[in-house]
Design a protein around this nucleic acid. Structure first.
Length: 411
RNA sequence: GCGCCUGUCGUCAAGCGGUUAAGACCUCGGAUUGUGGUUCCGAUAUGCAUGGGUUCGAAUCCCAUCAGGCGCCCCA
């Protein structure tokens, strides 16, 4: 037997029985984001590798080990691992800084990361996300978070936890990093391998380590003192406290998590995640924050921005599978020509109609009809002769023989 | 990239060294030549992820590869 070809590791088919859920995610996204004045943007699935190296940051895991990069005509191209860099590129390239701020954009689509697949993590996955450009005020941060919660509510997801934190600006963060490194230096040799790595790469992440011996080290008073200190500068602190008060006023429940640090380099000040307890270890459905220097770093005008992305597969696994919709009618007939005629006629008027194309036995056709449709439209010899059709309600077994015009009032 | 666990029909599975590889659902056919959803019969794995090895004998034991699950890292 010829060998079959399988899907690539970390990718999967979205089968017909699952696709209805995706429609729900997409329709609710369009409706919710439109309410807030967002417009959809669709950017290419691959971009210049440099965009991600400069945009996402070349010290990040995403850029260092997770990108699908290939060469074509002497160019280095990469399948997008996330879409913020692409949207920013488009914002700059299309002169959107000339539009009156805020510029509000949303997107959905596949992203690619070369990672070890597990639940809630695949190599090709889908994100829906939003980006708002041009507003420095924390009202923007608040609105974006509120919209995320609103969207999740529209999907029936009410009990998710919103966590927020402030990373400060590059300047105050640098100071904190240095203090942290200084106080941890004597303990460096006692840290786990991962933490030794993080010490150089991203000291903020150290605090989140799950290894017991590391946790014990962090408990030491002189280290706790640094961790607990409010390292962010006055301006950043004000931004953060305004955000909190906006959220309070809008009755958005959240917790401040000082250990919340996002792995993408472009974030500053506000970062947030929305988590679920039903997702295993990949428990964040939504992640985002402010990235005030990204537009400038990619060659645009200095433009503040804030946004988030949600993993659609993760959202999906939290939703209950909707029942598949039944057809309006299934035509039962041994005359394919008449069945086809009636089917086309009704379909043109917007009805969902199917009929048997292989001329199966009457009982088989009716059995099929009962499974997939609300009504059986029986078009036998007698009906054809009389120019009528017998309509059977498959839930109640009621059956009437009617003219084709009368049919519309029943369906 | 690392650690632990798993892999039997389209799906869910029983089997744990010698069986004709259970069973259920789905699908298809029949009982039922124009009346379904109930019922009853029947069909459907020369095969146990793939490749090696151990053994008189392997779905069952061992090794490798591939794939999946969980955790770490990281992230949506």
């Amino acid at each position: 037997m010829t060998k079959i070809i399988n899907v690539i590791k970390g990718t999967h088919d979205i089968l017909p029985q699952e696709v209805e859920q995706w429609h729900i995610l997409e329709e609710n996204a369009l409706n919710t984001f439109t309410k807030y004045g967002y417009k959809e943007i669709r950017t290419p699935i691959f971009e210049a590798t440099e965009l991600f190296a400069r945009g996402v940051g070349d010290t990040t895991d995403i850029v260092n080990k997770e990108m699908y990069t290939f060469e074509k005509s002497d160019r280095s191209l990469t399948l997008r691992p996330e879409n913020t860099a692409g949207v920013v590129r488009s914002y700059i390239e299309n002169g959107m800084s000339r539009l009156s701020p805020p510029v509000k954009l949303w997107y959905k689509g596949p992203m690619f990361r070369y990672e070890r697949p597990q639940k809630g993590r695949q190599r090709q996955f889908h994100q829906v996300g939003v980006e708002m450009f041009g507003v420095k005020d924390p009202a923007a941060d608040a609105e974006v978070i509120i919209m995320a919660v609103d969207y999740l509510k529209s999907l029936g997801l009410n009990d998710l936890e919103v966590e927020i934190n402030s990373l400060g600006c590059p300047k105050c963060r640098e100071e904190f990093k240095n203090n942290l490194k200084k106080v941890l230096k004597p303990e460096f040799e006692n840290l786990c391998e991962d933490c030794k790595n993080r010490y150089e790469k991203n000291p903020l992440r150290l605090l989140d380590c799950k290894v017991e011996s590391c946790k014990a080290i962090f408990e030491k008073p002189e280290i706790q003192k640094v961790i607990q200190s409010d390292f962010i500068c006055e301006e950043c602190a004000e931004h953060f406290s305004k955000l909190k008060s906006y959220l309070d006023k809008m009755n958005i429940k959240y917790t401040v998590n000082k250990l919340l640090v996002r792995g993408l380099d472009y974030y500053n000040r506000t970062v947030f995640e929305i988590k679920s307890n039903n997702l295993g270890s990949q428990n964040a459905v939504c992640g985002g924050g402010r990235y005030d220097s990204l537009v400038k770093n990619l060659g645009g005008e200095d433009t503040p921005a804030v946004g988030w992305a949600m993993g659609m597969e993760r959202l999906n696994s939290l939703l209950t599978i909707p029942e598949t919709k039944k057809l309006n009618g299934y035509i039962v007939s041994n005359s394919p020509q008449d069945a086809l005629e009636l089917a086309c006629e009704l379909r043109n008027e917007g009805y969902n109609i199917e009929f048997d194309l292989s001329n199966k036995k009457f009982t088989k056709q009716l059995e099929k009809a009962s499974k997939v449709a609300d009504f059986a439209l029986i078009l036998g010899e007698d009906e054809i002769k009389a120019g009528k059709v017998s309509v059977k309600n498959l839930a109640t077994s009621e059956q009437k023989t009617v003219s084709r015009q009368e049919l519309r009032s029943i369906l």
